[in-house]
Design a protein around this nucleic acid. Sequence first.
DNA 1: AGTGTCTATACCATATAATGAGAATGTATT
DNA 2: AATACATTCTCATTATATGGTATAGACACT
Lengths: 248, 248
Amino acid sequence: MLQTLERGLDILQAFSEADPLRSAAELSTSTGLPISTVYRLLQTLEKRHFVEAAGNARYRLGPSMYLLAQVVRQQMSGSLGPVALPIMQHLTTCTGETTVLTQIIGDKAVCIESVESPQAVRLSFQRGRVMPLWAGASARVLLAYTDPQTAADVLAHIDNEWFASGEPVDPEALRHGLQIIRVQSYADSQSEVDAGARAIAVPVFNQDGHLLAGLSVAGPLARIGDSHVPALVELLRVASAQMSAQIA
Amino acid sequence: MLQTLERGLDILQAFSEADPLRSAAELSTSTGLPISTVYRLLQTLEKRHFVEAAGNARYRLGPSMYLLAQVVRQQMSGSLGPVALPIMQHLTTCTGETTVLTQIIGDKAVCIESVESPQAVRLSFQRGRVMPLWAGASARVLLAYTDPQTAADVLAHIDNEWFASGEPVDPEALRHGLQIIRVQSYADSQSEVDAGARAIAVPVFNQDGHLLAGLSVAGPLARIGDSHVPALVELLRVASAQMSAQIA
DNA sequence: AGTGTCTATACCATATAATGAGAATGTATT
DNA sequence: AATACATTCTCATTATATGGTATAGACACT
């Protein structure tokens, strides 16, 4: 709607974890804006400390973003966090493995809360970590239960992506996998996000049956054999139900 | 320069840790913009997921900010982090207390790196934590050595602020305190940010003598007596010099 | 010095895109 | 039903953003 503002936001979003430093020329091509316009946008963003010069004709996100990032971190788990954490802690105690809570944000899955296993060999997973919606049990369970629109969008935009295991992503197999998840009502993944890890995930709904989050238990492949899966699924289902019951 | 963009950024910055949920009416008064304009800005920001409706006629920062926050966290300590961390670890080993690295961001001090003490009773201090530039040794040492312009701005905007101890902030005493810091070349604070804590801080410069960060060691009052201060200051000075030498 | 390449800022005529007041609609609350 | 807000729509006006080009500066290479 507001062209100038949107273009400014485009610039901000051009900075990613993979590409935190960008030149004006790059920004011009990646946004399709004329170079003079890019500089003008950068000027205002720089004046307000949303971006800053990083030397070498590069720009990066600036101080103002730091402060807003802190606001966002604080509200990250929102209403779900206080309810979920104790339940997740209990899950980790019972299973001895890392517990992760994820949410859909835009077209990505984001870890909004995690409780790491106390064991020396464990899967480490931190708040804020972002992954594609098709990779990993906790992400894929979100994809399986989200509205068809979002799911279709995601499936349509998979080209030449790989899992951490080295396997290529096959959209057709993925589509079928989502169906299986819905039938079993849990997701199982191996070496998709982190090589050598296995995760089991279930969805978390609110009382209206609306999808809120994905809850998963994950650990090294060697410790999570097929024989353990049924028990894990049962624990996850109980935990998910507890969360649903406690949400306002 | 670009009015529309600036107004959009104004809206984003209206969300703070103290006030993460804001109504359109509030935003209108706090930014001085007509209500119809605020709604128009919110519309575009919402479309791009920079803000989202939080129910109850409130808005909060949205998904897109989460993703950018992650980018920012990653680059937070920037070039300083890799150099500083091992030195900070060594400091914590020597002193047994929490070590904190801070930087000026806008008109605030932000913890960009920390190494917590291994002791059970310790000062916990996390990356991203924001405090006013006048509170705490690590912040105040930044204020003392930053350019006079910034310092004057900060001093001019102190009205009715309090330390964690309950003491009111006296701008005149503060001004004098900064002078003392510059003479001693270290800062000492008690119960300013966290009640019951004491911190000693020194500045970190690059080779050009430009202020980069503040480095501090902090712990419970009971463990940091006046007799320990000289030794701590010496350790901090050595650590600061090491950092300066290793910066590119 | 001289040339070429790149970043960054300044300029300017044009019309597009933003503006803000107010009306109209929607949604709770009483 | 009536009130109080929250939110979206409409529209005429003009301020504001636009993008092509020109200019100035930095840096490397001959």
